[in-house]
């Protein structure tokens, strides 16, 4: 955990510094009449101090057991792939429409863990898309984009 804590404390320290500077730019006001950045100034200030404390504490502690690697080998590309697909889905959904884009998304998601039976993947994604469309759009009045092809 030692390296992890050191890394994360540096991360939060950077964040808190950025927020601190922005808070000052926004205007702190007076203590009797706090301005826009007053609370965030306080919060980021304390966060900065605490992350510093965490850094010192982590540096001073002795490592008891060996640190596991942050990304277990070979698996995290899968996570990145899913994240990428989700981002793409969020971008194209309004233009492609709900049905088409969801079908594509579900195909990829099912495919990630089940690569052999392609026909199964297609059936599953087709069904899930259609059923979710009817449940959410028709029963629950969710409002999905129609997209290019009116789908």
């Amino acid at each position: 955990m030692k390296v992890f804590d050191q890394l994360s404390s540096i991360f939060w320290f950077v964040i808190s510094t950025a927020v601190f500077i922005e808070s000052i730019r926004l205007g702190i006001g007076k203590i009797q009449n706090p301005g826009v950045g007053f609370i965030t100034l306080g919060a980021s200030g304390i966060l900065g101090i605490l992350s510093f404390v965490l850094f010192i504490k982590a540096t001073l502690t002795k490592e008891e057991k060996e640190t596991e690697p942050l990304f277990s080998k070979g698996r995290w590309p899968r996570v990145l792939f899913v994240l990428f697909i989700l981002c793409v889905y969020s971008v194209v959904m309004p233009t492609l429409g709900y049905l088409l884009s969801t079908f594509i998304l579900m195909t990829f998601l099912f495919w990630v863990l089940e690569r052999r039976k392609i026909w199964l993947v297609f059936t599953a994604s087709f069904l899930s898309t259609l059923i979710s469309y009817f449940v959410f759009s028709k029963w629950l009045n969710c409002q999905f984009p129609d997209g290019l092809f009116g789908l």
């Binding site: 981002c87 959904m93 863990l113 089940e114 969710c142």
Partner: peptide, 29 residues
């Protein structure tokens, strides 16, 4: 392998349905 795509789909729809904008999806991700 079957459950997780469905959970993701429900999350996506649920978050999208709040304001009907995809921005909320970015926030969720």
């Amino acid at each position: 392998k079957i459950l997780f795509p469905l959970i993701l789909l429900f999350c996506l729809i649920g978050v999208y349905s709040i304001n009907n904008v995809t921005f909320d999806l970015y926030v969720m991700i």
